[in-house]
Write a protein that binds this DNA or RNA. Sequence first.
DNA 1: GTGGTCTAGACCACC
DNA 2: GTGGTCTAGACCACT
Lengths: 129, 129, 129, 129
Amino acid sequence: MEFQVDVASRVPIYRQLRSQIRQAVARARLQPGEQLPSVRELSSRLVVNPNTIARVYTELEREGVLNTRPGLGVFVAELKNDTTKKSRQQRFQQLLDEFLTEAVHLGLSDDDVLESVAKGVKKFAWQTQ
Amino acid sequence: MEFQVDVASRVPIYRQLRSQIRQAVARARLQPGEQLPSVRELSSRLVVNPNTIARVYTELEREGVLNTRPGLGVFVAELKNDTTKKSRQQRFQQLLDEFLTEAVHLGLSDDDVLESVAKGVKKFAWQTQ
Amino acid sequence: MEFQVDVASRVPIYRQLRSQIRQAVARARLQPGEQLPSVRELSSRLVVNPNTIARVYTELEREGVLNTRPGLGVFVAELKNDTTKKSRQQRFQQLLDEFLTEAVHLGLSDDDVLESVAKGVKKFAWQTQ
Amino acid sequence: MEFQVDVASRVPIYRQLRSQIRQAVARARLQPGEQLPSVRELSSRLVVNPNTIARVYTELEREGVLNTRPGLGVFVAELKNDTTKKSRQQRFQQLLDEFLTEAVHLGLSDDDVLESVAKGVKKFAWQTQ
DNA sequence: GTGGTCTAGACCACC
DNA sequence: GTGGTCTAGACCACT
C-alpha cells in the first residue's frame, strides 16, 4: 500500500492517514488479515513523527478497523458492526445529508450526483449480507 | 428557522451552525434574499457567545452563501460558483469517496446506498442549469 | 520579515498585517515554504492580541496565501488560482479602474502613471506562465 | 449620470457611491461645474436612506471633489490638490504597490498589467499640467 | 438597531 | 512548543 501525506493540507496528518486506511479497506485494497507496515517503518517512509502513526493505528483499532497483535504487528480486521442498526442508520443519514448539501453548493445537478454515485459504488467492496 | 447546538459535541459550535445553515440553504428551507436572525438574537437564543455567531456568518459570507449588510442584517445570497470546474470536480470526487468509504464501514450494501441517494436527492434544491 | 502596525490608523490591524504579508509574498520577500513567526511571537513583538494575529493567518490561509499546520506553524503556500479566469479578469478590471481614478484625483499625468507602473512592475515576482 | 448600488456587496453603500462619483469625475463623465442630483432625488431613485446620500456628498466636499452651494445644490468642483507633492507621491506609491500586489495574486503576468494599464489610461481625464 | 474589530484570558488539539 | 476554539466585554461603523 502506498500512503501519502499532504503537509500543506489543513487536515491533520493523523486524519489523512486514518481516512486513507479506512478507504483502502473499504475498496478492498487492504484485505482482512493483511499486515500493515510497522509504526517505525511507516514513520520513516512518510517522514512523520512515530507518535502520529501510533495514534492512527490506535484509533483505527478502537474503531474496529485494525487489530494489533503484540509482538507480531498490525493487521486489517474483519469488517464488523457492533453498534445498533438504528444508530448506524442515523449516522448514514447524516453523512448523506452533508454529502448532498455540499453537492448542491458545488453547483452539481441531481443527475450528476446519481450518475457519479452509481459509478463510484462499483469500486468499493460492499459486504455480502 | 430552528437551529440547534450541542455543546457536548466534539464538533466546534461554529461548525455545527455553519453546516446547519449550509444544509438549510441547500434544501431551500432558507431562500435567497431571506434574512437570518441577528447576531445578538441568535446568540441569546442559543446561549452562545455573539462572537461565535458572528464568525459563522463571516465564514459563510466568504463562502458566498450569505451576504451581510452592516446596519441591516444578514441575508441568504444567490447561489453562484466562482471556482473552476476542475477544482469543483476534484472536491466532489473526494467527498464522494469519503462518503462511500463510510457507507462500507457502516455495513451498508451498494443497493442501500443507491436507494438512499435516489430518495435523498429529491429533498434538495438543485440549481437549474 | 519586518512587520509594522499603526494602531492610530483607521485601517484595522488585521488588514494592515494581511496586506503586508500579501505584498511580501508578491514581492518574493517571503518565499513559498518559508515559515512565518508564530502567533504568540508576532503577537508579543507587535503588542497585538494573539487572536488578531491568528485571524490574519486564518484569512490568508483561506485566500490560499498561507498554509497552517497545527503543531508546526504557518508557512507560505505555493501560488495557485482556483477561481475562474472570468471572475479574476473582472476583479482586475475593477482594481485597475479604482487605481486610475485615484491617480487622476492625485493630479498625476498619464505619463507619470505609465512610467511608475513600468518601474514598479520590476520589483514584483510574476508567475511564469 | 447613472448610479448603482449593489446591496449584496460587502462594500458599504456610501463607499460604493463615493467611488462611483470619484470615478465619474476622473473619467470626465461628470464635468467641473456640473450639478449632481439632490439628496432627496438620489435617495428615492436608489432607494437608499437620505442620510447615506448626504454623507457621501459631505465626504466628497471635504475631499474637494464636490462643492455644496446652499439653496442651489451640489456641484462638481474644479480638480485641485491642496496636499503636498511629497504626501501625494507617497500615497500614489502605496496605491501602486497594493494594485501590483493584487495583480500578482490574481496570477497575471507583468505584460498583462502593462498592457491593461496602457489601455485603461486612455479612458481617464488627466489634468494638463 | 445592525455587524465589525479588538482585547484578555481560558482550554483543547496537534506534533 | 504549535494553532484552534470559545467566552466576556468594550468600542466603533453603518443604516
